[in-house]
Structures are given as C-alpha cells and as structure tokens.
Amino acid sequence: MTSTPERMSNHWWWRSGVRPGRRLLVWHILPEGQPDVHDLVRHCQGKLGGLNGLDLIPVEWLHMTTQIVGFEDEIPDAEVGEMVAGVAERLVGLAPIEVELGRVWLHSEAIMLGIRPPKSLDPVREAIRESAAGTVCIHQLADEPDWTPHISVAYSNTDGPASPVVDALSHRPKPVPLQVGEVHLVAQEHIGRSYQWERRDVVGLGG
C-alpha cells in the first residue's frame, strides 16, 4: 500500500454543485469484457466483505475515472459533440495500451487498485483534457490537476479506524493485465451510496 490512513471517512458527502438527479459528464475507462480484472476485484472484495462501513462496488459499475468535464445541464449537446470529435481525433494515433492492475491503494474514503507503470495512461487523459478545454465553455478541468489512475473496489460509508481494512488486505493480490482500448463518455449520477450512469459516447484508441 502506498498510503495507510489511520481512519476511514464517509465518501458519500455531496460535492459542490452535486444534488440528486443532477448528472456529471465524465470520461471513464471501463474494464468491460476483462474477466481477470473482475476476478481480481472480487478477490479483494472477498477480503473486505466481512467488514462494516464499506460499500462494495458491483461489477457493472466498476470504472477508472479519467476526467470529470462538468455538469450535463451546463454543457450544450453541440459542445459535447465537438469534444467527442476532438478526443477521437487525438486518440486515433494512440495504440491500445496494456497496464498492470493490482497495486493496492488505501484512501480514507475508498479502497482502490492502482496501475503500473503509473504514468502510462497519461496520454489518454491529456487527449481528453485538451479536447474538452478547446470545446466546452463551462468545465471543471482546473479542479483536477493531478491524476492517479485506479479502479475502486469499495467506498467507505462511515468514520472509523482503518486498521481492519489494512489487515484484511495485508497480503498483496497478484496483478492482472488491464487492456485500455477505448474511453467512454457517461452522464453520471450520485444515487444513494453508488455512482450510476448512462453512456453518452465511446471513442477507441487507434481509431
């Protein structure tokens, strides 16, 4: 683990501007059709399943948040279309990327799996950020200057000691390959203690 906080905290506080029914446009890398990734997540969740205060993330909602763009109700469809076209133009020359998933990373609000090499997906995010900056008038790019690529396996829903989580994941899982061949634009909503979304578009790497 690269970080071992002493306490867990509730992840489900309402971020600025977020409210029930209001959706964010977000670019995700989704681990679809990758059973090794799903098995790794289930393995970690199996270690955590007996602990209180955690929400295990269902397979259908697994994701790697790559860039939050902004609120859907503030971004016209024409700008969304221009952004997607710009992302496609930038990613056409970038071949699909394989990374290693499995580095356990503990945050006070979540348990996550990071990647190696840690910077290998930066060109994907930069393509998205460049396109969004040039096409979307109201965006949140300045709010997220740094990126640590990860797939969360569970969110904390309460305040409490982190030691039970640390102990449960004391044995490192065996890493698995994560294939990144496309990125998805989704309209994401905070619903209860989960993130759910409707897909808006998909762009492949390498055209």
Rank of each mutant, 00 (worst) to 15 (best):
G50Y: 03
E74V: 12
M8T: 00
I75G: 05
D36N: 01
A85Y: 07
H43G: 03
V202E: 12
E109A: 01
V41E: 03
H38A: 08
E89M: 15
H11I: 02
P58C: 11
A88F: 07
V37S: 08
R116S: 15
V99D: 03
L94W: 03
N10G: 05
E109V: 02
Q188Y: 15
R7Y: 01
W147A: 09
L40P: 00
I111M: 07
V59N: 03
V80M: 11
L113W: 06
V92D: 11
P96W: 11
A127F: 04
D36F: 00
G17N: 10
V124A: 00
K119N: 06
C44F: 04
V92R: 12
S152Y: 04
P177K: 05
I97Y: 02
P117E: 05
T158I: 13
I191R: 15
V166Q: 13
M8K: 00
R7V: 01
V87T: 14
V26K: 01
W197I: 10
E79T: 07
W197E: 08
L51Y: 02
L205H: 06
H139E: 06
P173G: 13
G134S: 11
W14K: 03
C137W: 11
Q188C: 15
P149D: 02
P5V: 02
S194E: 10
R90M: 02
F71R: 13
W61G: 05
G17I: 10
L94V: 08
D55M: 12
T65N: 08
N157A: 07
L54P: 04
Q179H: 13
G17M: 12
